[in-house]
């Protein structure tokens, strides 16, 4: 299995018309770097879904002109990091006691938790319920964080108090 390792930085316009071209750009780069990977299609599906949601989230919430994204590939993982100077994700979560899970969102199929993971850092965790015939009225209409969390092997948010930057980091395994 040949992987082209290394980090590449992208800066995209934070605007709706730029959303899909930006995702395609990241996918093309990633596809070239990992083209001989065993689980190529599954990994590219995850990268596509994660990057789509990171950009959608930025368009909706960050209020910045550009989005900076870094794709760092090593032999084991793809790390996708999105940095912006927009509004902090959720200040309340950042002061939650270390190691404690806080329920962020839920419906009849999933619970989405935020786990404090060091200073100003939270880790997202999704748990599935065993409900096989969910009632449509008890299902959320907000899936962005859930999609990223379920695609990722690790999904972290860090708020850098010195720079005021939001740092979202998603790790996707290359080894199944």
């Amino acid at each position: 299995m040949q992987i082209i390792t290394g980090a590449k930085e992208f800066i995209f316009l934070n605007a709706l018309p730029a959303l899909v071209p930006s995702v395609k750009h990241v996918l093309d780069h990633t596809g070239k770097c990992i083209k001989d990977t065993d689980y190529l299609n599954d990994i590219l599906f995850r990268v596509k879904s994660v990057v789509t949601e990171l950009f959608t989230n930025a368009c909706k919430h960050s209020g910045t002109e550009t989005v900076k994204l870094t794709v760092d590939i090593n032999d084991d993982y793809i790390s996708i990091t999105k940095i912006d100077d927009g509004h902090p994700f959720n200040r309340e979560l950042l002061v939650h006691p270390e190691g404690e899970k806080k329920l962020l969102a839920y419906d009849v199929m999933h619970n989405l938790y935020a786990l404090t993971d060091g200073e100003n850092t939270i880790k997202f965790i999704a748990e599935e319920s065993d409900n096989e015939q969910p009632d449509i009225n008890n299902i959320t209409e907000h899936f962005g964080l859930l999609i990223i969390t379920k695609c990722a092997n690790e999904f972290l948010y860090h708020y850098d108090r010195l720079t005021g930057q939001n740092v979202f980091t998603v790790k996707i395994s290359l080894i199944g």
Binding site: T52, T56, H142, G144
Partner: peptide, 10 residues
């Protein structure tokens, strides 16, 4: 994306 999935569920 998730916005469109939300629209479908709605």
């Amino acid at each position: 994306d998730s916005s469109f999935l939300g629209a479908l569920v709605s």
